[in-house]
Amino acid sequence: MKINKIELKELLKKLNSGEDVSGVKEEARALLERISPKELSETEQELINEGLPETELRHLCEAHIEVMAEELKALKAEVEEGHPLQVLIVEHDEILKVLDRLEQANKVIQEMNSYDCNNDVFKELKEVSYLLLETENHHKREEEALFPEVDYTGVTGPTRIMKMEHEDLWPRKEKIDYLTEHIEKIEFDDFKEELKDNTEYLILILRDHIFKENHILYPTAKEVIPEGRWEEIKKNSDKIGYCSFTPKDNKK
Rank of each mutant, 00 (worst) to 15 (best):
E81T: 14
S41N: 09
G82H: 10
E54Y: 12
E66A: 15
E56P: 00
E78G: 01
L75C: 06
I89Y: 10
T43Q: 08
K25D: 14
S36Y: 08
H59W: 10
I89S: 05
K73V: 11
I89M: 14
R58E: 13
Q45H: 08
M68L: 05
T55L: 11
E46H: 07
E80S: 15
L40Q: 01
L57D: 02
K76N: 09
L52P: 00
K73R: 12
Q86H: 14
P53T: 02
E78D: 14
E27D: 13
E56G: 00
V24L: 09
K73L: 07
K73G: 02
E44R: 09
V79S: 04
E70T: 14
L60M: 03
A28L: 06
E46V: 12
E50Q: 14
A30M: 10
E26G: 14
R34P: 00
L52K: 07
H64W: 11
S41K: 08
L31G: 01
E66S: 13
E42T: 07
P53K: 03
E44Q: 13
E81G: 05
E91I: 05
P84Y: 04
L40C: 06
E39P: 04
I65T: 10
E39H: 04
G82N: 08
I89V: 13
E33V: 06
H92S: 12
E66L: 15
E71A: 14
L52D: 00
E91L: 05
E27L: 11
E81Y: 10
E44G: 01
E42N: 03
L60C: 04
H64N: 08
S41F: 01
L31S: 06
A74D: 12
S41P: 01
E42Q: 13
L60I: 03
Q45W: 04
V87F: 03
R34H: 04
H83N: 05
E71L: 04
A30S: 14
C61P: 00
R29C: 07
I65W: 05
L52E: 09
L85Q: 03
M68E: 06
E39F: 02
S41T: 09
H83Y: 08
E81K: 15
T43L: 07
E44M: 15
K38L: 09
P37E: 08
M68C: 13
L75V: 07
D93P: 00
S41A: 15
E26V: 08
L75I: 08
L52S: 02
R34N: 11
L32M: 10
L85P: 00
L60R: 03
L40A: 08
A74Y: 02
L88K: 01
T43D: 02
V24H: 11
R34G: 03
E80A: 15
E56R: 15
A77S: 14
H92F: 10
L31C: 03
E91W: 06
V24F: 14
E50V: 02
S41V: 03
E33P: 01
E66W: 13
A30N: 12
K73E: 11
S36L: 07
L72N: 01
E39I: 07
L60D: 06
E46P: 04
A28N: 06
L47T: 05
A30Q: 12
V79Y: 08
V79P: 02
L40H: 00
S41M: 06
L57T: 04
A69D: 10
A63T: 02
V67S: 12
L40Y: 02
D93G: 12
L31Q: 05
I89W: 09
E46G: 01
V67A: 09
M68K: 13
S36A: 03
T43I: 11
E78P: 00
